[in-house]
């Protein structure tokens, strides 16, 4: 077996078809995770009685266990739950109808939610208290102050963390192959084992991931510069 540089290109082209799946998993999980994260972060910051304890437990559990475990728990647990519910209530649901990618979506959203919760929390805490006091001083209500003053600044402060989470989820999405979703990693395995050229195929997929990561870093770098414009000092 010799290294075949031409096959890297062949594999690269074949792998391109799997990029949308990987990106879909990433984007969906980060988006849902952001919503879950905001809810849990706010309930923890405002110490809402029951919700904050649940949120703390959720964040601790998810951050203390590997992403793979979440995926496997959802993969085996969700059908049990769905079938049990439908049997009990006679809804006629069937867990076999759940598409494989849905397991990835659900489980990765739950994973991302816990990590996002910390991102959102640190972003909100980074905003100076004087900002919300000033907003109240000019007569804004608290929701207005949060929406107009706190959230934009918190977003700017947490952008680097957000981009890290996005990259983390992009890399984490490779786990989806364990529940037989054909993402980039699974596609690479297919290409590799059909052609018996493992090294070349994985090199190609590594290059794709590298490219995607650098792209995300560049884009968020540009957004960061734009969003932090208000911070510049000086007079003009």
């Amino acid at each position: 077996m010799k290294l075949d540089p031409v096959f890297i290109w062949t594999a690269f082209v074949q792998l391109l078809s799997a990029i949308p799946t990987t990106l879909a998993i990433t984007v969906v999980s980060v988006f849902c995770g952001f919503i879950i994260g905001t809810i849990t972060a706010l309930s923890r910051l405002y110490r809402i009685p029951v919700l904050s304890q649940i949120s703390t437990g959720y964040v601790t559990f998810i951050r203390g266990t590997p992403m793979l475990t979440h995926l496997l728990l959802i993969y085996f647990g969700l059908p049990m739950l769905v079938d049990g519910l439908s049997a009990q209530l006679g809804l006629g649901w069937n867990s076999a109808k759940i598409p494989m990618i849905a397991f990835a979506f659900i489980s990765f959203s739950i994973t991302a939610g816990a990590y996002m919760s910390e991102v959102v929390r640190s972003g909100l805490l980074a905003v100076d208290r004087g900002q919300i006091e000033a907003a109240w001083a000019v007569g804004m209500t608290t929701p207005q102050a949060l929406r107009r003053i706190v959230f934009p600044q918190a977003l700017a402060a947490s952008l680097p963390n957000l981009s890290n989470s996005l990259i983390g989820m992009l890399h984490g999405s490779t786990l989806a192959f364990t529940v037989s979703v054909v993402d980039l990693n699974a596609k690479a395995q297919i290409v590799a084992s059909t052609n018996w050229k493992f090294f070349e195929a994985y090199l190609a997929v590594a290059l794709i991931f590298w490219g995607l990561t650098v792209l995300i870093e560049r884009i968020t770098g540009a957004i960061e510069r734009r969003i932090n414009l208000f911070r510049r000092g000086g007079v003009a």
């Binding site: 290294l3 890399h171 984490g172 490779t174 990693n185 994985y202 997929v205 590594a206 590298w210 650098v214």
Partner: peptide, 23 residues
């Protein structure tokens, strides 16, 4: 640093497992 932070650890695992013996 860019490579190891820019690719998923799972891919690196396969890459080394299959690639290193060949190299």
């Amino acid at each position: 640093v860019s490579f190891f932070r820019g690719t998923p650890i799972l891919i690196q695992l396969f890459l080394f497992y299959y690639g290193l013996p060949e190299i």
